[in-house]
Design a protein around this nucleic acid. Structure first.
Lengths: 108, 108
DNA sequence: TTTCTTGTTCGCAAAATTACGAATAGATTG
DNA sequence: CAATCTATTCGTAATTTTGCGAACAAGAAA
């Protein structure tokens, strides 16, 4: 584990950020955050992209840990992964809180 | 303006998130956040990548608005863009705060 | 002016991302 | 069993990202 280029913390926040780095995925997260959960079809209806693409974005959000899914045949139910959502929330808050910059930026 | 696929808010946070979506860029941001400002060389020394690549990452962070640079010949001084940093901080906090999920996630 | 220092830009290659339609899988319904 | 509904996976194409060395630009120093 000593051959890493960056710290675990940097890798971790970058992972969350990367998952959030596409407007379609932000739209999915916002849609899910506003309700307890919903089905794939509901998410697809909300977005202007093909279902294969929606599925792909959902997989990325799931891999990043921000959401989770469950089969409820013949549908698939998705929801926010609450634990990681709070973790991400805390990590981002800490990250943004660490800036020591003054009222005036030193560069123009 | 009616032909947009996603809301301005979604585009905006995705833009910030995308810029933060690489560990090298997170390392740069953390390094800059811990001090008032520093030179390109200092940042390069901190990272395990070629200077051309560092320059490229800096450009992306600058385009996203998270940092700013200034020529101080023959060096280039970089620092956090405080205004946008606080904007991003607020946007992320609001985003994570909007989740209505309960203590128990509805999906496994 | 010539040389040196500092960073950016260029050109390129490899890898990853984004997007879609078609094919597929799994379960339910007729 | 056949047909249907739901969503994922496959195959593919276009684009973007990442990374590097070499070339370049702009000042500073000799």
């Amino acid at each position: 584990m000593g051959n890493r280029k960056y710290t675990d913390e940097q890798e971790r926040i970058a992972r969350f950020a990367k998952a959030m780095g596409h407007p379609a995925r932000m739209a999915i997260l916002e849609f899910l955050a506003r309700q307890d959960c919903c089905f794939f079809g509901d998410i697809h209806d909300e977005l202007p992209i093909a279902k294969a693409t929606v599925s792909q974005h959902l997989k990325e959000l799931k891999d990043a840990g921000l959401i989770q899914g469950e089969i409820e045949a013949p549908k698939v139910k998705y929801c926010i992964n609450r634990e990681n959502w709070q973790l991400a929330s805390a990590i981002f808050a800490k990250f943004f809180g660490q800036c020591v910059c003054k009222k005036e930026s030193c560069c123009k």
